[in-house]
Computed example of a mutant assay.
Amino acid sequence: MLEIITSDALPARHGFFTRKGGASSGIFAGLNCGAGSSDQAEIVAINRARAAEAMGVAPQALVTVNQVHSADVVTVAGPLSDRPRADAMVTATPGLALAVLTADCQPVLFADPEAGVIGAAHAGWRGALDGVLEATVAAMETLGAKREAISAVIGPCISQAAYEVGPEFLDAFRDEDPAYTRFFANGQGDRLLFDLPGFGLHRLRAAGVGQADWVRHCTYRDSERFYSYRRTTHAGEADYGRLISAIRL
């Protein structure tokens, strides 16, 4: 049985899928939708087909890109034969589901229901700092959306209590804007704790979207429901699954 987290703040058919209900086994146990993982390709295809069915679209209409931690956005008008290198998508085409894959990074889903425009973004710290969220909003505007009518929701991602970083990480943010130090708390020794969803919400609200929210689920803390790159790294495991989050008109 698939487990799908939704938000009342997002006025479009959508889902932040947990790892439950998939066909993968071993370290990937559950709904691993990451073709870039070392999981069996045919099993990943089964998992993606299950997610597509839950979204009410054909498997080829569940559109993903080759995520590279960039601020690049692709405008999609139909199923993609090749996955472009980008980290966000927008569309005004009914029947398409835009999907992003994550394992601690922020999956962010966007909708302007009046304009009939949706978006999806993969926003890790680098993409968020470089402007992928703002770029997604701007791309939606080119399709007729109005930013004050856009609702954006951040799905399950790593929380501040679990996101330990070094001082050089803080420097990258402080160099961009000294005010960004407020998204860091003191950890052990010279370690700091970074508030990724807090930063994402700040950037969304500063971009002028009508509503921005976070579902408040931490991928690192809940191993039964979520994959986590950082948890896998700490456990010394060879690889990790990818969660899928999708939205459609």
Rank of each mutant, 00 (worst) to 15 (best):
A121Y: 06
A179L: 12
A88D: 10
A246W: 04
S81W: 08
E224C: 09
A41Q: 08
R242K: 15
G30S: 01
N66T: 13
S159M: 00
A145E: 04
E164N: 15
V209F: 03
A138F: 03
D87T: 03
A172Q: 14
E134N: 08
A29I: 08
A115F: 06
R85A: 15
E148K: 07
G56T: 02
I46T: 14
V215P: 06
A138V: 11
W214V: 09
E237C: 13
A35C: 08
T142H: 09
N32S: 12
G78Y: 04
L133P: 03
R248T: 15
S245M: 02
R248D: 09
F17D: 07
S81Q: 14
D72W: 02
P107D: 15
E224I: 06
P167V: 12
E168S: 10
L109I: 09
K146F: 05
G189V: 07
K20V: 14
R191F: 11
E114Y: 04
C105N: 14
A120H: 04
G127W: 00
I247L: 03
L133I: 04
I46K: 14
Y229N: 12
R182D: 14
A35F: 10
D87C: 01
A152Q: 00
A71C: 09
A207R: 01
G187P: 13
V153K: 01
L109R: 04
E176M: 09
A77E: 11
R83V: 08
Y229C: 10
N186H: 14
G127I: 04
E237Y: 13
D175G: 04
L170Q: 07
V100A: 01
A51Y: 00
T18D: 06
A51M: 02
T233C: 11
A23E: 14
A35V: 07
L249M: 07
E164G: 15
T233R: 13
